[in-house]
Design a protein around this nucleic acid. Structure first.
Lengths: 215, 215, 215, 215
DNA sequence: GATGAATGAGGCTTCATTCAT
DNA sequence: CATGAATGAAGCCTCATTCAT
């Protein structure tokens, strides 16, 4: 009985230490990058002993993975919460898209440092992590493709090569998030930028012939 | 007199060695990434002594810079050679855009490994290189913005926020190059992909004029 | 509580390792000189790992400094312990000088290898160490000058240029210590040499009073 | 015939290069010390190619030796030129000693940088050079001893342990030269210092009983 | 003979990881 | 379990010397 409680308390302390290490890692990796960050930096930042680190993580590499997983879970959870059923009218459909994209952008901005970290440092970690990152890319592209197909089935999108277009959407989105995070879009603001982006996605930059403006 | 010849011969030898090192570096960096690549790997690949390396480059970091510069000069030269005067008719304008973009894409594909290298490894090298890379990004975006403004002035593009759109174009383009390089677009081919991309850029994915949305 | 003990134990371990390194350094520096000594020699001699060295000293240079300090403290402590109040009669004064000098010489002899080391290798280490060494020289000279002035005030020394004479005394002393350490004075012995030296210091080598020069 | 002239010209050129290298070495060794001086520093200073160095000297070590020999020859020649027959009267004997010593000191001062170099860097070069240096010391000491014995035979010096005293004289002299070179004796001047030194050597610092001041 | 490019053995130092307490 | 001292395998870089021209 008492042993049970003891166990739980110990587990809680363990978990807290692990969290401290992850928090410290987030800071240190952002400050110095994956290769520049030392395990010793992390433990100092976390305020634990060097040996303690290896009771929680097998290696620096695993720590990076663990951090990635934590951030991903966080972001996916938050984005999943945004869900909004898209209406059946193309104009409202556009507006709803704007809202969903803007909300997602806000989530990314909130986790901006981490997102930036994984996108800049991740590819240089090793082939495995590169693959992990690429699969995230592909998953998002798949979601975009799915969304496109859905729009097409409703007549809100023209027939197009969804694989190419979805990749472009992802690339454009990632780039915008990056620009936004770097403060280059502060003047127009998140909503303005998203509105422009969605407009572009639906209509391109061509002059259009009536397009959305048709009565 | 004889000294002149001697000097020239020496310089030629030096240059040859330097080229060997740069070629070797290109290979090794692609194989192992910036952080994984050892100076010793490079010299072995180049078939020169370890000390020779340091007669040509101060450090691995400087080598990376030199390689980047060499590749940049190469690519810029090639892309600059593509120049094609865009016609005054919107349909031909589109077609010309397709040709220019496809040709550029081919150049990038030809230097694909290096481009990939700099975009994946570059950001993790250090703040300085990150800035260098970012400035390349911004220059390309500036070119895209210029192109957009030109199109707008001819009535081939609608009024739009060129800063946002140009960044999106760059992001979309980079992503496509990456996909293409990874073989994910082999089925559609470079020309097909570029045609889709340009189509998307001009018209978006929304239903075109006369489409189902405007009865 | 337990942490206190832990800390003390750790510190003790650290200190022991540091001492091992210093002892090893003393040996190795004497065997191979400063420039010839390798950090790897020291760690092998100390029986610790290469990395351990750098947990205790920043570099070979710092190790040399630390060793110097340790030896200096040792010598200064021992010499300080010799103190003997010099009597008021010139003959006894001379005898007392002999005893003090001989005792000091014995201390130096005991640390002979180290003294020799610092005097032969020190000047070639760098400007900073050279300055350190020079200041030791000057301090000893200052002590000698002080001693001279004291003697003068008692009428045991003639009026003389204390700065010049004290420097000469130091130079003569250093040279004798060196000779002694090299075994060139073994026949006469430390006491004999010191007696000669003190005699010379008080009276020079000229013919004494009543000598042939004053009829 | 012509071949003879050609040979002589070549030899002259060779010799000039060798001298340039030795001059450069003198500068560089003084600036950076033996261990800090690079062969490349020397050749740059001499304005010749790296390979040229090895046509004149087998190694950096041999260069140091050659430099030492050149300086030694120079100094010995100059000092030998000072010769002055010491008179038969003790007072004049003292004065003559002062003149000889002062002249020698001037020669040393003139070659001060080199003397300093060999005394500070020499001992750390290797055992062989250390021995060379020590033998110079011993030779000077032997000269001093010889001088002492000569004085004793004339009744100008008391019976004393010439080996100990001569070593002391050498040590005191070296120290004074060093002090002088470092500018610490500029106020009293070379002649003043030598006069004090000789006075001390003859009479010590003791009060003396009449000594030189006897009427 | 003079040159300077090339060499490579070796030294210093770092830092992820292990281990004794 | 937590700790931090110790480890040692690598890596980077230097520089006296060699060698091709």
């Amino acid at each position: 009985m008492i042993t049970e409680i003891r166990k739980a308390v110990n587990q809680a302390r363990r978990d807290r230490t692990r969290e401290k290490l992850l928090d410290a890692a987030a800071l240190v990796f952002q400050r110095k990058g994956y290769h520049g960050a030392l395990v010793s930096d992390v433990v100092v930042e976390a305020g634990v002993g060097q040996g303690t680190f290896y009771r929680h993580f097998e290696s620096k590499r695993e720590l990076f993975d663990a951090l990635f997983d934590r951030v991903m879970v966080q972001i996916v959870t938050e984005v999943a919460g945004i869900a909004e059923s898209l209406p059946e009218n193309i104009q409202e459909y556009r507006e709803a898209s704007v809202r969903v994209v803007a909300a997602s952008a806000r989530v990314l901005k909130a986790n901006g440092g981490m997102v930036q970290l994984f996108f800049t440092e991740g590819p240089s970690v090793d082939a495995e992590f590169r693959a992990k990152l690429e699969s995230v890319h592909q998953e998002i592209a798949a979601m975009a493709a799915e969304y496109l197909r859905h729009a097409m089935s409703l007549g809100f999108a023209r027939e197009c090569h969804t694989r190419v277009i979805s990749q472009m959407l992802v690339g454009a989105g990632v780039r915008l998030v990056n620009e936004y995070f770097n403060g280059h879009l502060d003047d127009i603001g998140i909503d303005g930028a998203v509105r422009e982006a969605v407009e572009f996605a639906f209509s391109g930059f061509g002059p259009g012939s009536g397009g959305p403006s048709c009565p």
